[in-house]
């Protein structure tokens, strides 16, 4: 196997992006569920260096905003009092990576709230929501992709290695799963769950179901690789020496599938992030007040938001670097291993 550096760069970029999302508590100024009922749909605030009197300030500052008199949705700056923007301020308590309790935020302000990317319908900070939303969406993506690959590899390897009626049966079941109308399945599942189940639990249950149901495609790919691998000379030789099935699979055959599995992983993660968005769009995702990229974008279903609140598009932009990273990683991995066939197979999805 020839190693090239290409995929490492992608991996580092992805690690940085995920690191930012994982430590959202530090990078965001506020709790993503905290409402500011005086400032719904506030546009992103402007950062100033020169105040209304023409004086220059060394420290960047902003003006607090309030509703223009007589209007329900137009805001104006209160230019009499500049609020300085501070870095490494203490604010809302949070747990870094879910563990370390802290209260230090990268930026913030004391006298008034600062909205870097504006606010949503309830006056919640859009920037905080995007970063925190990424936690749930990416977790869903990684978790779902992991499950799918686990089942896919297991079933694909079994079918390819043992062949015969087992292969036939498993592949027919795989076809059945591909043909399953999973959307209706999910609706039925959600209606069946008791209301007392916490919504976050319910959501991850749904992700597990999609993950478990999605094994068919990777299973087919893995089966193909295993089919060809088990006929290789070194495998035959090992078998001739009396190696057990488990030893052969572990030592010789599964390592052959690693490139396919890794490429699949890089393709599946964004797919599951998209699945989370679809679910949230349909109201099956993480419920309010928790943010996720899907639920953030769901507000764009309304025409009024679409035409009058441009900053609500921001989550869509936030997703781009992540997807670019994953797809770049997938194609770099593919180039490294020259597995050209996979492109055709995965394009169907």
């Amino acid at each position: 196997m020839i190693q090239r550096r290409g995929w490492k760069r992608w991996l580092i970029a992805l690690a940085v992006l995920h690191g930012i999302v994982a430590s959202a508590g530090f990078f965001t100024p506020y709790d993503p569920t905290e409402q500011d009922r005086e400032r719904p749909y506030l546009p992103p605030m402007k950062i100033h260096l020169v105040d209304a009197q023409g004086h220059f300030h060394l420290r960047p500052f902003f003006y607090a905003e309030h509703l223009r008199a007589g209007s329900f949705d137009q805001f104006e700056e209160s230019t009499d009092q500049p609020v300085p923007l501070r870095f490494f301020v203490s604010g809302v308590r949070y747990r870094l990576f879910g563990l370390l309790p802290s209260g230090i935020h990268l930026f913030g302000a004391q006298a008034s709230r600062f909205y870097l990317l504006g606010s949503d319908a309830y006056g919640r900070d859009q920037f905080s929501r995007i970063l925190y939303g990424g936690q749930i969406s990416l977790l869903a993506g990684l978790f779902g992709a992991g499950l799918t690959l686990f089942f896919g590899t297991l079933i694909g390897a079994t079918a390819g290695y043992y062949g015969g009626w087992r292969d036939g049966l498993l592949m027919r079941v795989a076809e059945l799963f591909v043909a399953l109308p999973w959307l209706y399945l999910l609706f039925a599942l959600r209606a069946f769950l008791p209301l007392a189940v916490s919504p976050v639990q319910a959501f991850f249950l749904i992700i597990s179901v999609i993950g478990a149901v999605g094994w068919a495609r990777p299973a087919r790919l893995v089966r193909g690789v295993v089919l060809s691998a088990k006929e290789r000379d070194f495998v035959r030789a090992a078998r001739g020496f009396g190696a057990t099935d488990w030893y052969l699979l572990r030592r010789h055959i599964l390592p052959e599938t690693s490139s396919v599995v890794l490429t699949q992983a890089a393709i599946l993660v964004p797919q599951f992030v998209l699945a989370e968005m679809t679910l949230s769009f349909l109201g099956l995702g993480v419920p309010e007040p928790l943010p996720s990229w899907g639920s953030l974008l769901a507000s764009l279903q309304q025409y009024s938001v679409l035409v009058s609140s441009w900053w609500m598009y921001a989550p869509a932009l936030a997703i781009v670097p992540f997807f670019l990273g994953y797809l770049g990683l997938a194609s770099a991995l593919q180039q490294d291993t020259g597995a050209g066939k996979i492109v055709n197979m995965t394009d169907e999805t």
Partner: peptide
């Protein structure tokens, strides 16, 4: 009405009541 539920959820959080909003068909 989903919006009202989200606001009420936040109001009741101030009282220490944990409310889940479940949108259903």
């Amino acid at each position: 009405r989903t919006k009202m539920a989200t606001l009420i959820q936040d109001d009741l959080k101030q009282l220490g009541i944990h409310v889940q909003v479940v949108p259903l068909e």
